[in-house]
Simulated assay, not measured.
Amino acid sequence: MNEEDYSDYDYDSEYYNYDSGDATDTQVTKDCNGNELKDGDSVTLTQDLKVKGTSVNLKRGTLIKNIRLTDDPEEVECHAEKVKNLVLKTKFLKKH
């Protein structure tokens, strides 16, 4: 094929617009039930979790207060009973 064969294609059409800048602004952090989480919410653990690097086990039903959202919509930062600066996956959390 020559360059002339491609002259009929419109590469500037909306189908080739790969601008993903708007996608990062609309990311919503959700818990395991699909409820939207916001900064300062309280959540409950849905299962026992072993905290890496410590001997602490967080039990199912533990209440975590005042969470902070991160850039990743699947993770939140928080403080637990004995552990500070903890990052938890949202799939293990339920909004309280």
Rank of each mutant, 00 (worst) to 15 (best):
G53D: 01
K95M: 05
K30Q: 08
T62E: 06
Y9L: 15
D12R: 07
E4F: 10
K82E: 06
N85D: 03
L45C: 07
H79G: 00
D5I: 10
E3I: 08
M1Y: 14
C32T: 15
K38D: 07
D48H: 13
N35T: 09
N66G: 07
D39L: 06
V43Q: 01
K95N: 01
V83T: 07
G61S: 09
L58P: 02
P73R: 06
S55G: 15
K38R: 12
G40Y: 00
V43K: 04
A23F: 15
N57E: 10
T62F: 09
H79K: 08
V28Q: 12
G53W: 03
V83C: 03
Y16C: 14
K52C: 03
T62W: 07
Q47Y: 10
T54K: 04
Y9R: 13
K95V: 05
D48Q: 11
L86F: 00
I67F: 03
S13E: 10
K38T: 08
K84F: 04
D41G: 04
E77Y: 04
T46C: 11
L69E: 02
D25G: 15
G21V: 10
M1P: 13
N85L: 02
S55L: 07
E3A: 11
T62P: 01
N33W: 06
V43M: 01
D72Q: 09
I67H: 00
E3D: 14
T90E: 00
D10W: 02
V51E: 05
D39P: 08
I64C: 02
S20V: 14
T62Q: 08
S7R: 09
S13Y: 02
S7H: 08
C32A: 13
L69H: 04
Y16V: 04
D19Y: 14
R68M: 10
D22E: 14
V56A: 04
K94T: 02
D5P: 11
E81P: 08
T24M: 15
N66A: 06
T44R: 14
L69Y: 00
T29A: 03
L49I: 15
N2H: 10
V87F: 13
D12K: 11
S13K: 09
L86R: 05
Q47F: 13
C78V: 05
H96N: 14
N57R: 14
H79P: 03
G40C: 00
T24K: 14
Y15F: 15
N17A: 08
L45F: 10
R68F: 04
E14D: 11
K82Y: 07
T54F: 04
E3R: 11
A23K: 13
E77Q: 15
L49V: 08
D31S: 11
T70R: 14
V83H: 05
K59M: 06
L45V: 02
L63S: 13
G53C: 06
K38H: 10
D72P: 08
K65C: 05
Y18W: 13
K95Y: 04
T62R: 12
G53P: 04
L58E: 01
M1L: 13
G40T: 04
D19C: 07
K95R: 11
K95F: 05
G53E: 03
L88A: 05
V28E: 12
K50D: 01
N35W: 11
V87L: 10
S42C: 08
E4Q: 12
A80Q: 06
E14C: 14
